[in-house]
Design a protein around this nucleic acid. Sequence first.
DNA 1: GATGAATGAGACTTCATTCAT
DNA 2: CATGAATGAAGTCTCATTCAT
Lengths: 203, 203, 203, 203
Amino acid sequence: MSPRTKEQNEVIREMRMTQIMRAAAEVYLEKGIQLEIRDVAVQAELGYGTVYHYYKNKHMLLEDMLWDALNRTESALFPDVTGDGGSLRKAESFSRLLLRECVQDPSVFILLKTVADNFHQFPGNRFIKLYTEFQERIYLPFVGMIREGMGSSSPEKTANLVFGSLVGYAALNIHHNMQSEIDAEGIVNMIFSGIRPRESGTE
Amino acid sequence: MSPRTKEQNEVIREMRMTQIMRAAAEVYLEKGIQLEIRDVAVQAELGYGTVYHYYKNKHMLLEDMLWDALNRTESALFPDVTGDGGSLRKAESFSRLLLRECVQDPSVFILLKTVADNFHQFPGNRFIKLYTEFQERIYLPFVGMIREGMGSSSPEKTANLVFGSLVGYAALNIHHNMQSEIDAEGIVNMIFSGIRPRESGTE
Amino acid sequence: MSPRTKEQNEVIREMRMTQIMRAAAEVYLEKGIQLEIRDVAVQAELGYGTVYHYYKNKHMLLEDMLWDALNRTESALFPDVTGDGGSLRKAESFSRLLLRECVQDPSVFILLKTVADNFHQFPGNRFIKLYTEFQERIYLPFVGMIREGMGSSSPEKTANLVFGSLVGYAALNIHHNMQSEIDAEGIVNMIFSGIRPRESGTE
Amino acid sequence: MSPRTKEQNEVIREMRMTQIMRAAAEVYLEKGIQLEIRDVAVQAELGYGTVYHYYKNKHMLLEDMLWDALNRTESALFPDVTGDGGSLRKAESFSRLLLRECVQDPSVFILLKTVADNFHQFPGNRFIKLYTEFQERIYLPFVGMIREGMGSSSPEKTANLVFGSLVGYAALNIHHNMQSEIDAEGIVNMIFSGIRPRESGTE
DNA sequence: GATGAATGAGACTTCATTCAT
DNA sequence: CATGAATGAAGTCTCATTCAT
């Protein structure tokens, strides 16, 4: 009866959802949590009914977008990070990659900012699971690197400091349309030269 | 003739408006731009009609709150900053004070975050004037200190870096209810040790 | 205890109420039924609390204003009208005076227009009494003049025709700020030359 | 691809908007400018959300209703008017048609009354354009007929007189639920016999 | 799968009115 | 008497969501 096979439909489905999430991220960048489904539909060049065809409601869409971003963040970070070198080097590399992802992928930026802001202004506790997973899959590994690399007594504080700075810096540039100016190398060097333990001896 | 004198009324007005702005800042911290006038009224322990007695609408209230914060920020920074010492010292001092204001005064935090985010998610261009004044009265002086202190070729980039980091760090802590953990001294030292030009000579 | 005698207070009271009604008429001319008590207060150069000191609510104020206008209309018309001459002459004279009152006294105009519009858009049936009295004291006498003057089979229809025309003409001019252009003589002549029974034969 | 074609949707839109405007005119007749969107929706047998689906707000709805009435007024008048006969005959015919339209089509009546009242009580200057067009398309042609027909030195005054009278007469009858009594022939004869220049000589 | 017509919950805002001073 | 601070009922409007096609 159907002129399309199941597989074809599956492909369309996949495509549409990606298209919608991408649009949502772009609109979110502009309007924040106040984004309207209608805006998303316009941005995606779809009717707004179509958005509802794929997402039961606004929050499911945002949630899906953020889960997707979490997955992509993880894949972007870990192949490269888990490598050689001292742990602090890893943390630096991790930070650099994070920043680069932010610039390239709006939804990754949104994820990080949203986590940094503790999902304030997101209603309900729909996002607790997402937050927990972010902690486990992204934040705690990062804290680990810092701990190992510095022997710091409170690696969480340091991690927060780095994480907050990175996200704040990214936000400032992105919201002022200066993505291109973001100097991942520079800021990461700065931050880490600031936190790196004073080399003993000759100072 | 008049039951209350003009002065008495003026005092009441002043008081109420401050009370309302304070309440608004607190609610904003929790709900962001989605704050409802009803919440503000509840927080201020007033009927919501009273809020409308003083502010024509939500945005006028927020605007007034931010102007007020701008004034307080300025007064908090400059008496102390314009002092002795090298310019970089001044910039450090400035940063430290900024962070402390953020912690003590929610509306200052909101101002800084809002400026950093370029008023994205604030509708219309009601806030251009505020932004311009912030630039003139807070940001440019800060850029000046950096320029003098570092001879950097792009003090703006450095200022953005510092400013973004400070605000990002503050946001992360405030939104996770860790104001008390904010280590103004620590983060400012870190940032400035990161940007301070390498001392030539013996290193 | 009171520094003013009862009489003095009575005088003030009288004065204030007139002042308020006058202001109300002026505002009504501009904003219609949507007039706000605050506007009236501004126009009367009083605090809006003061208006409420004299009038329990908006509708009582309007009602009082219209009753007042009714009384003034009656006194303006009848001394002069009940005179000599044929009844049609009286009706003409009546019409002319009516129009002149309209121009000089906004609240008379409002009364006539409101009656012509059957108090549509006035809520409730607060105004039935006023309407009835208007009929008895102004409209029916006028119908009587027409009946006598024309021997018409339906003097009401003719009266409506005249009354509607007068009010419509007045409204058009007043709302276009052309009170000064109102040519009472002209329009009344026109209307009455139109309704006057054709004089037969020898003229 | 599309479930309903663009054309189908266009037809629905057109229908609904007409339905809503018609309902609005009916409600306006009863409540005037104080009409509520809810009443309009009830009258149109639609949810009030649907009204907002088509009209951004109350004033846009009224504006559209009046533009529509202007167009219909024009089409009703001119095919028949631009005909044979002396200009005064045309003006009479024009007046008769105008009055008939008023009776049959509430929104035409509202348009004429609103214009006569110079949009007093309509807020803002949203309606200037409409007023101007009314002048050009309806009023000035009418003034022209009068000028030609009478050689009057001030055809505008005469036109105002006629127009004001017609609208006032219509208003009185309509607001007293006496549409059926409106005697277009009669009042038009009356008015024009009143303004027609006395035939010199032989009468 | 794709769409926009239809809808009402709920937020926003106005403004009449009360009342303490 | 005179006033404006305070208030919430009631209207305006937005926007997420449902659903017929």
